[in-house]
Design a protein around this nucleic acid. Structure first.
Length: 272
DNA sequence: GTCTATGTTTGCGG
DNA sequence: TCCGCAAACATAGA
């Protein structure tokens, strides 16, 4: 569930909560499959957090001694910062004890989330495509790479090696914004359409970021950032999970369909 | 109570 | 190259 804006929000919160500079004093793994890297996870003890940043939907903690702690939240993962005295919930699968008495806890009801402790961050992050909010992602580069692909737009944009950080929500929103149908073949876009898609991707991501991410519904399984804060972006969504409602641009009824095995939302008039 | 759907990623077979 | 499917799990909602 967390896509680029949600993961960036978590990074921002962790930094605001003062984690950079703290030493990790101990680690406890309660669900071994959460740890995807080889080697003894306990060797993280004694390493300080030098920086926290994001690549695609991955959180990266630069640690002293050239170690990297990498976290992917997948569907239901969350990081909670709690006092060490608080009792552990049954969904907290990894607990890092921090200098000063607080603990960073990886909470993941569905257990799809993964963490890596590695000397070689590239082995985890190396397959990722361009960051859509960085310089290298231009209308020209997107246009050129779209031309070489015979795939449908939706599964292509969800492919993290094509462009990094988009998930189901923001892909549907970007395609609506650009007026493109999710089943269009990538290579069929003309220059103007590709440029419009480029602008739409950036716009929906930046809006999500400004709103501290998207929290759907009210249940526990939805996105909450570190300080238990909900994202405010749900109200800004134009088509995602709005099937049956009126398109905010033309008033037609939004439809839901399945594209590439993923539920997909479109305006049949704006996205022919 | 029971059934269905789920926002992610990876790997496999065709 | 590309597509479809399954798997990793638990919970919310109908």
């Amino acid at each position: 569930m967390p896509e680029l804006p949600e993961v960036q929000t978590v990074v921002n919160d962790l930094k605001n909560l003062g984690l950079v500079g703290l030493t990790i004093e101990a680690a406890q793994v309660y669900w071994p499959r959460t740890v995807a890297s080889e080697g003894d996870f306990g060797r993280i003890a004694g390493h300080a957090i030098l920086n926290i940043w994001r690549r695609a939907k991955y959180l990266v903690f630069d640690l002293s001694g050239d170690l990297s702690l990498i976290v992917h939240l997948r569907m239901s993962g969350r990081l909670d910062l709690k006092d060490a005295s608080e009792t552990r919930s049954k969904h907290e699968h990894l607990v890092l004890s921090l200098e000063g008495g607080r603990e960073l806890r990886f909470h993941d009801t569905r257990k799809f989330g993964r963490v890596w402790l590695t000397e070689d961050a590239q082995s985890v992050l190396g397959h990722l495509g361009p960051e859509p909010l960085e310089e290298g992602f231009t209308a020209a580069s997107l246009t050129a790479s779209l031309k070489t692909k015979q795939r449908q737009l939706k599964p292509l944009l969800l492919d993290q090696s094509f462009v990094a950080g988009l998930g189901n929500i923001y892909v549907d929103e970007a395609l609506w914004q650009a007026g493109l149908h999710p089943t269009r073949t990538a290579s069929s876009l003309n220059g103007a359409e590709a440029a419009k898609l480029h602008a739409a991707i950036i716009e929906v991501l930046e809006r999500g970021l400004r709103n501290s991410g998207t929290t759907l519904g009210s249940g526990q399984g939805n996105f909450y950032s570190v300080a238990k804060r909900r994202g405010r972006n749900a109200d800004e969504l134009k088509v995602f999970r709005r099937d049956g409602e009126a398109c905010p641009r033309c008033g037609a009824t939004i439809e839901r369909l399945i594209v590439g095995q993923r539920s997909t939302h479109v305006c049949p008039v704006c996205q022919p």
